[in-house]
Design a protein around this nucleic acid. Structure first.
Lengths: 341, 341
DNA sequence: ACAAAATGCCAATACCTATTATCACATCGC
DNA sequence: GCGATGTGATAATAGGTATTGGCATTTTGT
């Protein structure tokens, strides 16, 4: 029974049930050490049910010093990977009775969003795609934090094995016979991307293959960036025979650039992405990529965060690293000397 | 100055400034009818600044009976259109000091999420991609609601002209000479999709072109659904020469199905989507589609919602309809009799 | 039967802010 | 010099819940 926006309060339930407000609270909070007679309990529950009573979570939050709300900050929704992370996070959070306050922010906006989240007394925050090290230390001070896909000493993290992703990319392309390999990465220092790069470069070096500076191209971590980047690589007098992109959006842009330039995949060039977003399967030939459990990342981030919250910040930072997997589709091919131009 | 999670309260500011808590509140709430001496005001502001005081929004919400939070409910993040709507909504909301509580829900889950949002005293809710008519009336009772992309008598709405989209699709394909047109739509009764369908079908009828039942195919509103749907259409003894899809995800699935089946776009078949998601430009040939301002939809939805909230629900439902635009790319072609199979 | 223990409920209070009504004081008009 | 007006701050209270301590009442133990 609700009229307009006004809601039934515990006091009203109490009055109708002939008890005091605290008793209602005791019945509903299921506190084990609270002793309340079975008959009273039943009566209160019945009335509460009838009136459709639901506790006001603002009031609850005020007194419990807990809002049962989490912040989630991502740099943008245009990347399906973040959408998947959010989806996984929201699901677990909702099941646990937590709300998700979503923020889209880059650069210095992040700090303001964090302050706004603090004002709302969030119990914790999940940050994906934004380097925590670029934030002023005070911004995260005293907050329960879980970082997604970036290593950290100071905060808990949940990530996919980005370094390994780079290694896998290099090793697989090398095994196909490629020796002129390029990396297409983002201009911003996004931790996961840097690790993919490092893994790739390190594996190349380890195999005695050099990566000339013009084969390490930086652009925005978007489709447009990948497009421009690949265009630049194709303009080189000595083209690479294989390109590894820091993420699938860039790879799809690169894919497009090849298609426009008449460069045949995988005949003339091998292309490898990272993330395994749905769209990778829609282009022709289908994009080979390195798969990563984005939804699971979001889900685990929330579980870890909730654990920290329950421990009241007394837990040391924990880290989880999930495995990545090479997904071979249609954009990678054997390299034979005859093939080079 | 913050220690751990504990925050500076108005009372502490008051004590340090040698005034009472209400005075601090008066100074900071900038109430025009509140009279406070300039000197006092300056002192309070200075101390508040020094201590880094920020009002607790839970407490504020409790007494003001307003949480400055909005709910946003979408059926899934896998569709980039919703991501864009959310992005537009979040930006405007944040600028106005409102938080966005994000929910991913379909079917009956929606009701539970709405209840959870009520418990948090949200000031209003935006619903996209979920038919309000399928919800029990009580679920939205007494809430400030703005629906995205679905018409309604009862609630305010912000939408793109879905009916027109269908009409445009039909007219353009007809003008290209097509007479055997098919529609690929979702199985669920999602309002926007239904309108696109109706506009399409009506325009066909108006031109004396019939739409046989096997040319009206229903499947899930996803890539997989579009793929399966197109496969079914291609299996017909009399294939359509042009297919209009309810959204781009389905169209991309259909695109893929054609590519797999060796059906040349646009030589053997013309394909038209709706939404204009980024990925439409990544497939080859690029997907022709009908563009719709998804971000703007989200932004306007919030603006409208805020207006309603400020009016305290005393406003009659308002509706905004934004224009859609045909974007001609590579998947539509002229139909000549010689081309038919 | 009586002290001791357990039970069941409530009064009081805290959480933090916003708002209304009120009070003390100064100023002003005449 | 005195009522009237205005100013600047505060006391009191509300908003809805959770929690502690305590008070009656009943039950238990011997």
């Amino acid at each position: 029974m609700r009229i307009g926006n006004s809601r039934v309060t515990a006091t009203e339930v109490a009055r109708k049930a002939g008890v005091s407000q605290p008793t209602v609270s005791l019945v509903l909070s299921r506190n084990p050490k609270a002793r309340v007679a079975p008959a009273t309990r039943a009566r209160v529950l019945k009335i509460a049910q009838e009136l459709g009573y639901r506790p006001n979570r603002l009031a609850q939050g005020l007194v419990r010093r807990r809002s049962y709300a989490l912040g989630v900050i991502v740099p943008g929704f245009d990347n399906p990977v973040y959408a998947a992370v959010i989806s996984g996070a929201e699901k677990v959070a909702a099941q646990a009775g937590y709300a998700v306050l979503l923020c889209e922010a880059k650069g210095s906006e992040v700090v303001q969003h964090l302050e706004a989240l603090r004002d709302r007394q969030i119990d914790g925050v999940i940050i994906a795609g934004i380097a925590a090290s670029t934030l002023p230390a005070a911004a995260l001070d005293g907050l329960n934090v879980v970082l997604v896909n970036q290593p950290s000493e100071k905060f808990s993290t949940v990530g996919s094995d980005s370094l390994k992703a780079g290694t896998i990319a290099a090793e697989h392309l090398l095994s196909l016979g490629h020796r002129r390999l390029a990396f297409l990465g983002p201009a911003d220092a996004i931790p996961a991307f840097r690790l993919r790069e490092r893994g790739f470069v390190t594996a190349l070096r380890g195999s005695g293959v050099s990566l000339p500076s013009e084969f390490l191209h930086r652009a925005a971590a978007t489709v447009a960036g990948g497009l421009a980047g690949m265009r630049a690589l194709l303009a080189l007098s000595e083209r690479p025979t294989a390109v590894f992109c820091a993420n699938d959006l860039m790879a799809l842009g690169a894919h497009k650039a090849c298609s426009v330039a008449g460069v045949g995949l995988p005949r003339d060039l091998s292309l490898l992405g990272c993330d395994d977003i749905e769209m990778a399967q829609l282009v022709t030939p289908e994009l080979s990529t390195i798969s990563l459990p984005a939804r699971e990342l979001g889900a685990r981030a929330v579980r870890l965060l909730l654990k920290q919250i329950d421990a009241d910040g007394a837990l040391p930072p924990a880290s989880q690293l999930l495995a990545v997997k090479l997904v071979v589709r249609g954009t990678m091919g054997q390299h034979t000397p005859a093939q080079s131009r």
